[in-house]
Nucleic acid binder design. Structure first.
Length: 227
DNA sequence: GCGACAG
DNA sequence: ATCTTGTCGC
C-alpha cells in the first residue's frame, strides 16, 4: 500500500522527538468514521541480538473469516535508544516500511503499545495512524501512564485508565483470569469501538490475533538474523 | 532530589 | 525488548 513520506525525519534528537509528538498529537481524531473494519493489520517489532536492528512485522487479518491475508517484515538500523514515551522513534520507521509492503489497504491498525495513553497523548499507535491516515488502536501489554482499578477477572470486563479526570483508555481483560491489556485510541477511533474491536480479535489468547501473529512472525524473522 | 517508566 | 527452565494454575 502507498504510504506518504512521514511529515518528519526519523533521525532526530530527543528534544526534537518530543516537539514532533506535541505537534502531531493535536491532529489525532477520537472519532471513528469507518463502520466496517474487515481487514485488520496487527503490528509488532523485535530486535536483533546485537541490538543493531529493529525487525517489524505486519499481519493482515480478515476479522470475519479469521484468516491471514498477507504478512510481511522489514528491518531497519536502530538509531534511537529506548526512552519511555519515545518508543515510536525506535520502531516507527521499520513499522512503516513493513506496512508499505502490504498489497491491500487495512481498514484498521492495531499496534503493540499505547495510543493516546501517553505523556503527550501520542504513543506509537497514534503516530502510525497519523502517518498512514488509517484508523488505529493501541494495545499495550503494560502501563505507561495513568491509574486504574483492576478489572473483573472475566473476559470482556474492563476498567477505565485515568490521568486525573481524563480518561485515556481501558484496561481490558481479553481472556479469563489473564493479565489485562491496555487499550487506547490511536487515531480516527473512539474508545468504545476500540474495546469491541480488540475483543473481537481476541479469540483464544490474551493478545488480538493479528498482533499475536505479528509477534510470532518477527520472532521467526529474528532467528534468521544471525547477529 | 526521588521514583516511574509502552517495547 | 532481551537474557532464560521449569513449573504452577485456570
Amino acid at each position: 500500500m502507498y504510504i506518504p513520506r512521514p511529515p518528519h525525519n526519523w533521525k532526530v534528537t530527543k528534544k526534537q522527538a518530543i516537539l514532533i509528538q506535541k505537534k502531531f498529537s493535536k491532529k489525532v481524531s477520537k472519532v471513528s468514521n469507518n463502520k466496517t473494519f474487515k481487514l485488520v493489520a496487527g503490528v509488532d517489532a523485535a530486535f536483533s541480538r546485537n541490538g543493531q536492528y529493529c525487525i517489524a512485522g505486519v499481519v493482515l487479518w480478515d476479522i470475519k473469516k479469521k484468516k491471514i491475508i498477507e504478512h510481511h517484515t522489514a528491518s531497519k538500523n536502530l538509531i534511537f535508544p529506548y526512552i519511555p514515551g519515545l518508543l515510536t522513534f525506535r520502531e516507527g520507521s521499520a513499522v512503516i516500511a513493513a506496512l508499505r509492503k502490504l498489497n491491500m489497504k487495512p481498514d484498521l491498525l492495531i499496534c503493540d503499545g499505547q495510543g493516546i495513553a501517553h505523556q503527550r497523548r501520542f504513543g506509537i499507535a497514534s503516530h502510525v495512524g497519523i502517518i498512514t491516515g488509517i484508523p488505529s488502536i493501541g494495545c499495550g501489554k503494560s502501563r505507561l501512564i495513568g491509574e486504574y482499578k483492576e478489572p473483573s477477572l472475566k473476559k470482556g470486563k474492563g476498567s477505565p485508565l485515568y490521568f486525573g479526570s481524563e480518561e485515556l483508555g481501558t484496561v481490558l481483560r481479553t481472556k479469563d483470569y489473564v493479565k489485562p491489556v491496555f487499550v487506547s485510541i490511536g487515531h480516527k477511533m473512539d474508545l468504545r469501538s476500540a474495546e469491541k474491536l480488540i475483543l473481537q480479535c481476541c479469540t483464544k489468547y490474551r493478545l488480538p490475533e493479528p498482533v499475536r501473529l505479528a509477534d510470532r512472525l518477527v520472532a521467526t524473522a529474528k532467528k534468521k538474523f544471525h547477529c
